[in-house]
Structure formats: C-alpha cells, structure tokens
C-alpha cells in the first residue's frame, strides 16, 4: 500500500498547534511508518514551490492551522485546497478566528497606530509608519499589507473537517489521525477529535442547574469552592457552550473554561449560546433582576466570544458594515506586496 501523504501548514497562528503535533511524541514515529509528511514548514524544509509542483489532490490530508490575515495566507489556503483530497481546519484560529480575531472589533489600522505611534516606550516624534514600499539607497524593499479583518479558513476555501481547540489536545489529534490512517473518516463536515456534548459533561464539578448570584465575579475576586460549578458561583465559564473534547483541562487546573473548543455540534454562534445558557440559569427570576445581574459581566464581547468572534454572527454584521463603504481596506484587498514572500508565485 502506498503511504499516505500528509501536510501541515500554519497561516496566521501562534505556533501552538505545531507544538501540539510535536506533543504526539512517539506517536509521530508511528505516523511516520504509514505516512509521508510532504509539507510541514515548522519542522521540515519542503517549500511552497514543492507544493505547487504536486499534482492536484496529491496530498491525502492537510492539517491547516492559523487564521487568514493576509493575501499570502489566502493564497496558500487556495493552493493547499487544490492539492489536498481532504482539507482540515486545525485549531481555533482556522476554525473560528481564536483570540487574534478580537482585533476585528477595532480593526487593523487602530493596531498599527497603537504600536507605532502611541506606545509609551516608542520614540517616534516624526510619526514614521511602516511602508509597503520603501526606497533604500541600494533599491526598493517591500512589506505586505494587512487585510482589514481576520477570517477563518472556511471563509476563504471549502473545508472538509474541523479539529477544534487552542490548541487541539494531542490525544484528540491522535484520535483523528487514527481515523485517517484506518480510513474511517466520518462524513465530510464532521468535527474530528471531539467527544459528545459539552465541556460540562466532562467537568468534575457539581451542578444544581440554577444560578442564584447577586453579581458575576472576576476570577481574581473570589476563592471559588473547589467542588461547585464555576458558573453557579458567579464565575463566567464557557463550559455549557463549548464542545467536549479537551477533557475539561482548564477546569481541572481550577480555572473556568474560556471556550477554545468552540460551539457544540449544531450551534453556529458560541457567544449567543453561552449567553442563552447563562440566562436559562436564572429561570424563575424577574427580567429586571436577570438584566441587573447580567450587567455585572465585564467585557461581554471579549468574554462570550473569546475564541469565536471571526466565526460568529457578529463577524457577519461587521462585514456588512465594511460593504457599506467605510474608508478602510476591504476583505478582498490587502494584496500590497502580495506574493513577494514566495518568488515562485509572483
């Protein structure tokens, strides 16, 4: 039997997904018995040009981590889509945008101004900003432009499967890889490497099913009871709106869940789902009381949508705003230097 052909890629990512794959440890050696890795920039020297040379569909499975931030990311996503029989959105950035998608609230230009003009240690009286093209005495050098909004992989190319998590747990990665190796992948569109229901089903804490707090607390404000549900003690926990799969890692470290495994199966908007779960905990209370307690949640968007803003309904609203003619670069622009990072594609 021919060995499987696998690829791993990172776009706008932190590198944690690649480290999670390295955490497979000796499973990686097992994987090497049955599969050739034909592209994995974090660990191997194959190049985009090599990938371009492969026949379409040459790669059996590509694990694509990272969000889409530049035209370069989108270009590689399209390339790997074409070359892969199965394209997997791997990790929270690729599936939902993850924490970097919080930048979509204020946009890229705000970020540039803050970093280069307004930071307290920056010495930049002349207001110098990075330029996409700059004439040096010896010749011009260039930088790419950022796109206005960070996107998920699925917002750019069709995706066959998702593997969730920030990063995915290595045991779940191995479970998914085993399905690949044994040719037992579920129907396209499935989420791989998860367990059924929500983080609450894996949580060791006890739950009464109702929230009766006067206000919500922030993690540093109380010493929580070690046995009782975080949410019912007034600490926001994304467990009820988060797909099971991690084994409640953070909760077992005595910290509430922030939702990195994304919404449960069949749920599109994790933030709305979490808000719904919180509100139903107050069943029987008056609307005024519920509103009053909810108003004690600080930073609702950054809390409810900590990992899922780019993949949420709010992102759609935001995109509508852009289409309405704000003076900012649109999703489809952002080429700038574009393909310069890979001379072979320019």
């Amino acid at each position: 039997m021919d060995k499987l052909k696998l690829a791993v890629y990172w776009a706008a990512a932190c590198g944690g997904c690649d480290i999670a794959i390295v955490e497979l440890g000796e499973h990686l050696l097992e994987l090497a018995q049955v599969a050739d890795i034909v592209f994995w920039p974090a660990a191997m020297d194959f190049k985009v040009q090599d990938v371009e040379g492969y026949d379409d569909g040459f790669i059996d499975v590509t694990l694509f981590n990272g969000a889409i931030r530049t035209s370069e990311d989108a270009h590689i996503a399209e390339l790997l889509r074409r070359k892969s029989k199965v394209l997997v959105a791997f990790g929270s950035c690729a599936t939902e945008g993850c924490i970097p998608a919080l930048a979509n609230i204020k946009g890229a230009e705000h970020g540039l101004r803050r970093a280069f003009l307004e930071s307290p240690s920056t010495d930049n009286a002349d207001g110098v900003m990075p330029q996409t093209r700059f004439a040096m005495p010896e010749g011009e050098i260039t930088l790419p432009t950022m796109s206005r909004q960070l996107r998920t992989l699925e917002q750019v190319v069709p995706v066959d499967y998702e593997i969730r998590g920030c990063p995915p747990h290595y045991e779940q990665i191995w479970k998914a890889m085993t399905a690949v190796i044994e040719n037992k992948l579920p129907p396209r569109g499935s989420i791989l490497g998860v367990d059924t229901l929500t983080v609450c089903n894996q949580c060791p804490r006890t739950r009464e099913g109702k929230i009766r707090v006067e206000r919500f607390y922030r993690p540093h404000e109380i010493l929580p009871d070690p046995e009782q549900c975080f949410l019912e003690q007034g600490l926001i926990c994304a467990g009820p709106a988060t797909h099971a799969g991690c084994g409640a890692l953070c909760i077992n470290a005595e910290m509430p869940c922030r939702g990195c495994y994304g919404p449960p199966a069949g749920i599109a908007d994790q933030g709305a789902e979490l808000l719904d779960a919180i509100v139903s905990g107050f069943e029987g209370e008056s609307d005024e009381e519920i509103k009053r307690v909810l108003s004690t949640i600080v930073d609702p968007v950054g809390t409810l949508y900590r990992f899922s803003l780019a993949g949420s309904y709010l992102q759609e609203l935001r995109m509508d705003n852009e289409a309405s003619g704000l003076p900012v670069e649109s999703q489809s622009d952002g080429d700038g230097e574009g393909h310069d990072l890979h001379g072979s594609t320019g």
């Binding site: 931030r69 970020g111 803050r114 950022m146 950054g302």
Partner: peptide, 15 residues
C-alpha cells in the same frame, strides 16, 4: 503584524 496591544484594550487585566 498582529496588533495584540490594540485588542488587549477593553479586556479585563486579569484575563
């Protein structure tokens, strides 16, 4: 460039 400085704004510092 990803701009963490900017989107830390508005978040609780304990996070």
């Amino acid at each position: 460039f990803r701009g963490f400085e900017a989107f830390c704004e508005g978040r609780p510092v304990e996070e």
